[in-house]
């Protein structure tokens, strides 16, 4: 019973989408499948961005530079993949780029104890400037984008096969990362120390846990996740780099993280909601519905963000030490 009251909003939301999907599937199976498949695809960068946010904020550092980390990594991944002709190098470059930016954020906010909002903004502005400056028209991936992985007969199932078993590798990897990071956060010593540092850094320090080391580690690892999200955009979703191609996803990822209450599984659910809103929007535009007002349709995911963050989140309690630089003396 307490389970029901505690998760009532999740249950209501999930029930609504299941009902809506079943309703539409009744007469338009093709579109429903397309929307659901797109939901998973669209949610992937949001999940990765949100996982980055969770890693950082659980250790007490606000990272609003996820957008910049993703954009720069999308660019780095694309350049490396197009020059070497190997997508794997591209993905690795994207992750490495995110990690370097994470380390830079850690240097600004942990070592120099600067304002974390400003440090994150630095990343965003730097990413926009650098990627726009070095952007060249006409580059392409010699191999094309990552290819679809199929699972035999499973992939041929109606709806489910198309939605879950005909995706590309980074999408699967993301689905795997959600439970892995959840487990790490709540069942390992690293996770316990991370949560302690994010809630009460001086308490962690007095039992010999190094706040600085944990924060550096988490910001760098989290940066790798955001970098993977960037690589996903250029190498798996689109297959090339476009100016400002992250288009606010790094910020929506923060909303996803908050809506998911700093919990990887919650964030995944929240990302699906946003992915769904985005997929419906794409489907509307694709069909030419409300074609006179494309901006209005384009607003949908952002309206969902505002409504959800303002209305549903309510009593979410962020890590207590968030945003405060830590110093011993």
């Amino acid at each position: 019973m307490s389970f029901l009251t505690r998760y009532r909003w999740w249950i209501v939301t999930a029930a609504f989408f299941v009902a809506f999907t079943l309703f539409t599937a009744e007469f338009q199976q093709a579109q429903t499948t397309a929307v659901l498949a797109a939901t998973l695809r669209q949610s992937t960068p949001l999940v990765l961005g949100a996982l980055c946010g969770i890693m950082c904020e659980r250790s007490g550092v606000i990272n609003i530079g996820i957008e910049g980390q993703m954009l720069m990594s999308a660019f780095a991944g694309f350049i490396v993949a197009s020059s070497t002709g190997d997508l794997l190098y591209g993905v690795a470059a994207g992750i490495a780029c995110g990690m370097i930016m994470g380390a830079f954020l850690a240097f600004l906010s942990v070592t120099l104890q600067g304002d974390q909002i400003i440090a994150g903004t630095v990343l965003n502005i730097a990413a926009i400037g650098l990627t726009s400056f070095f952007f060249q028209q006409g580059r392409s991936l010699p191999t094309g984008k990552t290819s679809v992985m199929r699972f035999g007969a499973l992939s041929d199932l109606p709806i489910v096969g198309r939605v879950f078993f005909t995706n590309r590798p980074l999408t699967y990897l993301t689905l795997l990362l959600v439970p892995v990071i959840w487990y790490a956060l709540f069942r390992t010593t690293w996770g316990l120390r991370t949560r302690a540092v994010g809630e009460h850094p001086s308490a962690a320090e007095t039992v010999g846990v190094s706040v600085v080391r944990i924060r550096y580690l988490n910001l760098i690892l989290g940066g790798g996740l955001a970098g993977l999200g960037g690589a996903y955009l250029s190498l798996e979703a689109v297959g090339s780099f476009e100016r400002l191609m992250t288009n606010g996803k790094g910020f929506v990822a923060l909303a996803v993280m908050i809506f998911g209450r700093w919990n990887p599984v919650g964030a995944w659910g929240a990302a699906l909601l946003f992915g769904y809103a985005n997929a419906v929007q794409t489907q509307f535009q694709f069909r030419g519905w409300l074609a006179d007002d494309p901006q209005f349709i384009g607003m949908m995911p952002f309206i969902v963000t505002i409504v959800v963050v303002a209305g549903f989140v309510g009593r979410a309690r962020p890590p207590a030490a968030i945003g405060q630089p830590y110093s011993r003396e």
Partner: peptide, 16 residues
Amino acid sequence: QLVPVLTVAENIVLGN
């Protein structure tokens, strides 16, 4: 120097 949201056992073993 205790983390309020963690349990007694988690607080005691933290770091060790």
